[in-house]
Write a protein that binds this DNA or RNA. Sequence first.
DNA 1: ACCAATCACGCATAT
DNA 2: GCGCCTCCTG
DNA 3: ATATGCGTGATTCAGGAGGCG
Length: 546
Amino acid sequence: MSTPDLPPDYYFRNFCGLVDHVRAHHDDLLNDTERHQVSTLRALPAQAQMRYVRMLMRRGNLFRLDRLQYAEIADTAQSAQTLEAAGLVRLDPDLPVEAVAGLYSKPEWLHTLADKVSTEQLRALRALKRAELDAELRNIYSGDRPCLPSTIIELRQPAWFDTFKLLYFGNLHQDLTEFVLRDLGLYRFENYRIDRDTRLIENREQLQELLDYYRLRDLREEVLAGQPEGILEYENSLQQLGNGSRLLCKKVERDRLALARQLERLDAPAEAVTLYERCMAPPARERRARLMSKAGEIGASLKLCGDMLASPRSEEEQFFAADFGYRTARKNKLPWPQPQKYIPPDALIRLDQDEYGVEAGVAAHLDANGECHYVENTLFGGIFGLYYWDLIFAPAAGAFTNPFQYRPHDLYETDFLSLRGAQWRDPEVDFTRPKQLADELIQRWQEKQGIANPFVAWEMLSPELIQSALERIPAAHWAAVFSRIWRAPRENRSGLPDLIFFPADGGYELLEVKGPGDRLQKNQLRWMQHFEAHQIPHKVINVEWR
DNA sequence: ACCAATCACGCATAT
DNA sequence: GCGCCTCCTG
DNA sequence: ATATGCGTGATTCAGGAGGCG
Ligand SMILES: [Mn+2]
Ligand SMILES: [Mn+2]
């Protein structure tokens, strides 16, 4: 696929767009340093700004000037000096070897070391691995400054740009490449109305908490790979971040669950429980019930299962409590209601093993008697996304704050639907006119092609599939599926069966394929239970190789 | 959709 | 040389 | 034998340059 040409200063335009937006709408949240640095930068000649932005987009704070050559920046030396005079960079900073070691390749170091060490030593160094060489460099120079063959340029305190990215995107995982990918046509976003009156981050405290959170998060991987003490310490610093925004709480909660889980793996159950107790979100209570049961605290475990059943915080938790409660009660000869277990209908198919995977194999096999599509979550998700397109992207307070959102900020909030009553539509009604609705959805499919929507996987949908699905699936079934998705749009977006089969003589069936050794996942089973309750035809297809 | 959820696969346990 | 990796680019 | 839990791997713009072993 060909991509459109971008202007030579594309990145600078993107940068200005981002920065100037934040200056215009969030200036009151900036501190003096941030404000000062941007205004200094923006007042410089374009060439100098562009050099600075090129550095911002690259990894690290230290660069070799000879490796910062760009066709669109003519004056290498001058723009660097302008930046230094403005206090935004340092030229040839006074740094120990370990700071600059990574700027040069192994051969380059060996070359500069040639007149500093003996030829024998040089030969020994050549045999070292890169990491070992870096360590050895420290010994060789032992505090002395290396004499480097190129000018080094150091970005001074580039952290202000994190603040800007956070205010612009509402997170720190998106950055300037979003602009590029959009402009290249690789990402497309809906043209929703942006709400400039409601801000995601409302005050400096919330902003600071999030910045601190992200700074902490850089350590997470290392901490998770380490000892329980480190994990607990890390969780403690998470806790001290503050108690402010929902945004922060959700992130911290996620991390806390992951930390607790790792404590379990490290065989520190008591510590894990302590962390789980600080979590509201599933599966915190599930993990506690398991740990208590394993520790022999049967009564407490069952009590917690009872709590979960009385006020489940997710469907998964509810099913777990019913099941696990029954199992542990029975093991200990205690009373507990037996959960009704749903066993979906199944069939066995013998297939020749081919290179495309079981699902495709079954689909090809069934194509002889009708039409079979490998859709997984994409059929119901896709139709859902197209049908509710205008509702999902309807303007609502605080829902959209920048042009790079694939969903409204509050899509997973419990009041999402109630805030969009005007856009509500009833599938029970609309899907009774399948021809008309197919026209609408196919037109939207064309018009919105490729635009990011959490429910729509464009590459899997086609007008023919939309057409067949609307013809064959009755309105009541659509309504039943959609209402379950609305109940928990994040959790219930997945778990739908692999295949949809349209037999030649009418009707349809949803089929979950299971190869040898595979089995239904929990969310897949819950969907099937829902299908059963609403007379939606479904089946598990077990495959045996012959 | 925050190097994560999501699915299949494969092993280790408990009954 | 090779294959794998990380970084950078538009 | 059947269940269950847990950990694993691939996948996420696409293509090029350069470093490393
Ligand atoms: Mn599947
Ligand atoms: Mn399957």
